[in-house]
Amino acid sequence: MDYRYGSRTIFKIQYHFVFVTKYRYQVLQGDVGLKVRELIRQTCNAFEIEILKGVVSKDHVHLLVSAPQNMAPSEIMRRVKGDDNFRTEN
């Protein structure tokens, strides 16, 4: 078992996310699919989210991730899907 360690905690939290394109249009092909994959990887690395498995299909994305215990699932998806990934906070 691969456990993750915090300052005072040991945890193994995994989430399986599936999200689809609008109207399930098949737009995640070729260069677009590669760019989506790269952006998801960059975002997950920036927020200490470990991608265990991931698949980018023509009209949907599967992600199995391990995340820190202080991040809610909704927060993870907001970071992965949102355009506010690289906003600076004042």
Rank of each mutant, 00 (worst) to 15 (best):
Y3M: 10
Q26M: 14
R79K: 11
V20F: 13
A72Y: 02
E48D: 15
D83M: 09
D2H: 10
I49P: 01
P73R: 03
N45L: 12
K53F: 13
G82K: 03
Y25K: 09
L64S: 06
P68I: 02
H62I: 11
N90T: 06
D31L: 09
G33R: 10
S7F: 13
R24Y: 12
F86T: 05
F19G: 00
Y15K: 04
S7I: 15
L34D: 09
R8W: 05
T43F: 10
V56E: 07
K12P: 00
S57P: 05
C44G: 07
V18H: 07
L28E: 03
I49D: 03
I49E: 01
V18F: 01
M1Q: 04
V55E: 13
F11L: 02
N45Y: 01
I10H: 09
I49G: 05
V55Q: 10
R41H: 09
R4C: 08
Y15M: 04
V36I: 15
K81A: 05
I40N: 14
K12I: 03
D83R: 13
F47K: 12
D84V: 05
S74Y: 00
E38A: 14
I76V: 10
E75S: 06
P68E: 01
F19C: 02
N90L: 13
A72I: 02
V61S: 04
L28P: 07
R37A: 13
Q69V: 14
M1G: 15
P68L: 07
L63F: 01
F17T: 10
H16Y: 02
Y3E: 08
G33N: 04
F17A: 08
L28T: 03
R24P: 07
R87S: 03
Q14V: 08
D59K: 10
P73Y: 01
M71S: 00
G82D: 02
Y3Q: 05
Q42F: 07
V80K: 01
E48H: 11
Y5F: 14
T21V: 09
V65R: 11
N85C: 13
S57Y: 15
K22I: 10
D59G: 06
Q26S: 15
E38S: 09
E89M: 10
Y15W: 03
C44R: 01
H62N: 11
Y23G: 06
Q29C: 08
E75R: 11
R4S: 10
G82L: 00
L63H: 06
I76A: 00
T43L: 03
I10V: 09
H62E: 08
S74F: 00
R87L: 06
Y25R: 08
I13D: 03
T43C: 14
V80G: 04
Q26W: 11
F17M: 09
K53Q: 05
S74N: 04
V20A: 14
D2A: 14
I49T: 02
R37P: 07
V27F: 09
S74Q: 04
Q14M: 12
D84M: 08
G6K: 09
N90M: 05
M77F: 00
M71L: 12
R79V: 01
R41C: 07
L52C: 06
K81W: 03
F47L: 07
F11Y: 14
K22D: 03
M77R: 08
N85S: 13
